[in-house]
Design a protein around this nucleic acid. Structure first.
Lengths: 223, 223
DNA sequence: TAAAAACCACAAATATTGTATGGTTTTTAC
DNA sequence: GTAAAAACCATACAATATTTGTGGTTTTTA
């Protein structure tokens, strides 16, 4: 019997334990599953490196998007870890676990990591986990329904936002004042005003307020 | 028992008949299925209009991408019909049936029609058909695996091609000479040359030939 | 091996985008 | 309710980016 090695990196230890027992108890056709768990960016990265160096890289790496609140200098997200994992363990299948609140990051993750799987946590259950493992090992990708809906929304518009646009929308969404945005977005104040107008136009919110703008951006799968 | 009304538009009559018998024989929880069939753009459009005007629009419209070879002036594809169907029958769920050879059009279709479902014909069977009906009626979208793979390819690159780029790639793919492209793409000859160079750069085919370019474009899900 | 097509490079023209400025309207806070 | 702050708008100008035209070289085709 072969063994499929899975690493889960998530700072909600209890959820991980749940996944572990489910997957290790599941009857798979040709293999059994063995799951390691880590709850920080650093220890997760370390495990991936070790396994890879030993010539026994993880078959599947499960990553929570939101990793534990910053310990040292600055936040390192699951996305960052995914990017690194792709490099140091290229054969591993990477699957993201997203809570509803950070599902908006799916587009960024699709581009930076292009994971073999993406699951929204509220949709995870025994069947979904089993299905995920079988699918990513054979014919990826595996996306849960809500992930698919987000992807569909994004695909259906051919609007292209550059880095400044995304930053602008992000800072707007966290309540940054337009006049303060010059500090974060490399544009002049009037440049920012122009872009904002333009974005409202593109996203179909004529002259409505900023709330309408970020709602539209979220609906369409940006930010 | 409710009745779900489906219209299939496909010029392969035999395949359609197969779908019809499968779907009308399938045991659904809350309804039975009734399927109409048409094999041309015009008759398909007509049926959709009639049903819509009678206040009983089709619940689901299945469209083959490739409709019968041109009869009158110019070709009308399933995609064109999909765009029209969205307008005249906005409550209908639209599902495309693609043969492998025209699967490359999925991206265009995702933008122009944004269908509730997309199935590659080689992946269609009883289960898939049943699943499709249930899914598009309740929680769309429904995509078969190969469609998903194409979508994933497209999502993972943030390359943005404008209309001229797409046209250029398309005409290149059908063998149009560069010098003749000025007729179809609204750019000067040197403009076209520039874009071509640029596209090769962007799509990662350094100074290879045109074949490499269109292959790369197809792989990544453009054209 | 000519002729055609593709490819390349560069300067000039054009279009797009960003900036600075000064003003009006809307929102916010007291 | 009102004054200050912020957002919004318009315009001229500056900076960039893109397209064009031209004249060439290389590659492909017949």
């Amino acid at each position: 019997m072969n063994t499929i090695k899975i690493l889960a990196v998530d700072d909600h230890k209890m959820t991980m334990v749940g996944y572990k027992y489910i997957l290790e108890d599941t009857d798979f056709e040709d293999y059994v599953v063995e799951m390691d768990m880590e709850d920080t960016f650093d220890t997760g990265k370390q495990k991936i490196e070790e396994a890879s160096k030993k010539g026994a890289p993880y078959h599947i790496i499960l990553l929570d998007i939101q990793l534990s609140p910053i310990k040292e200098g600055y936040a390192r997200t699951g996305e960052d870890l995914g990017i690194i994992a792709r490099k140091i363990s290229p054969t591993s299948k990477i699957v993201f676990l997203s809570s509803f609140s950070d599902n908006y990051r799916i587009n960024s993750i699709m581009q930076s990591v292009n994971p073999e799987g993406y699951m929204v946590k509220t949709e995870i259950n025994e069947d979904a986990l089993k299905d995920m493992v079988e699918t990513v090992l054979t014919v990826p990708p595996f996306y849960t329904k809500k992930a698919l809906i987000a992807i569909r929304n994004r695909m259906s518009s051919d609007i292209h936002l550059d880095d400044n646009d995304k930053k602008l929308l992000y800072y707007l969404s966290i309540g940054t004042k337009t006049k303060d945005m010059v500090e974060y977005v490399s544009l002049s104040l009037s440049g920012i005003e122009n872009r904002k107008r333009q974005l409202k136009e593109i996203l179909g919110v004529g002259k409505e307020n900023d709330y309408a703008l970020i709602t539209a951006a979220r609906d369409k799968g940006f930010i």
